[in-house]
């Protein structure tokens, strides 16, 4: 029996663990090794150069520029996405007309239809979303959906080369990232809000609490864990803005490197510009460090909240 148990455990774990070890763990470890070589790929010619790649990285302006774009995304995209998600979820679940005195709180009519529509972008691939928005942002005043709309509304002065102007390109890409993700958080927070007992809302209402107070004093504190998880998810997603930027930006990170992000810089360094694999690997390690700092900071912040309430 006991012997059978161990044979069974090994039999069930061997393949998944082997696959995971070879394709996930080993690349992870190798990334550190490769980052300390001057490897340029094709030949097996790898020379150990210590921390030279990191030295080079620190003095690379484009690295800092890309990192700053990542950090802007890391702060703006989750903040706006989660705020909109919370706002819409609150409207859907608690924002409805208060009917009679018996019914406590209710969502607006048709809330399930809204949820279905809001969630649409979440099931589409980033490729579809990015190509679609590229057409919406089309700089031509007659061809682009957005510019044509502005023209039709008599707002021709607002027409703009959205992705072609370095002052708006990054913001336009972030808008798409937000657009694509809000629906997920509406559904997530709705599920969370639905699990808050209505008695609590009723009690607040009897005490004369307004909706705004209800939201900030009851809904938000009770959803804090879900919001915190959402924040980390969204942050990791924003850190990997690769597909959005690669597909939408002019010249892969342009114009004038105004939308370059670390994952794209890594991709270009490794697979476009003379295969500097060692250098690209050091960017991977840098990303790992940034992600870890973000995760630790987020956990710290949410823990401090817990004491306050």
């Amino acid at each position: 029996m006991r012997h059978g148990k161990y044979r069974f455990i090994i039999g069930f774990l061997a393949i998944p663990l082997a696959l995971y070890g070879v394709l996930v763990i080993s690349p992870f470890v190798q990334d550190f090794q490769i980052s300390m070589t001057d490897w340029s790929g094709i030949s097996s010619d790898k020379k150990f150069i210590g921390l030279d790649n990191y030295q080079k990285l620190i003095h690379n302006d484009l690295f800092w520029k890309s990192l700053s774009h990542n950090i802007i995304m890391l702060l703006v995209v989750p903040l706006v996405t989660l705020s909109l998600g919370l706002f819409f979820a609150f409207m859907l679940n608690v924002g409805g007309r208060r009917r009679g005195s018996a019914a406590g709180v209710s969502g607006v009519r048709g809330s399930s239809i809204y949820k279905v529509v809001f969630f649409f972008p979440q099931v589409l691939s980033v490729t579809i979303i990015a190509v679609l928005w590229q057409q919406i942002y089309n700089p031509d005043n007659k061809e682009g959906l957005l510019n044509a709309l502005l023209g039709n509304l008599g707002l021709a002065s607002l027409q703009h080369a959205w992705l072609g102007d370095k002052s708006t390109a990054l913001a336009c890409i972030m808008v798409v990232m937000i657009w694509a993700n809000v629906g997920f958080y509406v559904v997530l927070f709705s599920a969370g809000m639905a699990s808050i007992p209505t008695e609590i809302y009723e009690a607040a209402r009897l005490d004369g609490a307004e909706r705004g107070t209800t939201f900030f004093r009851i809904t938000l504190p009770l959803l804090r864990d879900t919001v915190a998880t959402g924040w980390v998810y969204m942050g990791i997603m924003a850190m990997d803005g690769f597909a959005f930027v690669q597909l939408m930006s002019v010249n892969n990170g342009g114009p004038d490197e105004s939308t370059d992000v670390l994952p794209l810089l890594l991709y270009k360094t490794a697979f476009r510009d003379n295969s500097q694999f060692g250098y690209a690997a050091s960017m991977g390690v840098a990303m790992l460090i940034v992600t870890l700092i973000f995760a630790v900071l987020s956990m710290r912040l949410s823990r401090r909240d817990r004491i306050e309430f």
């Binding site: 995971y20 394709l23 190798q30 990334d31 990791i236 690769f242 991709y267 697979f271 990303m287």
Partner: peptide
């Protein structure tokens, strides 16, 4: 070991993954 993998975007290990495959 498995669960820890959730926290990291694939793009970080792109270079070694390319060579492993």
């Amino acid at each position: 070991l498995f669960v820890g993998g959730m926290a990291f975007p694939v793009v970080m290990v792109l270079v070694p993954l390319f060579f492993v495959t």
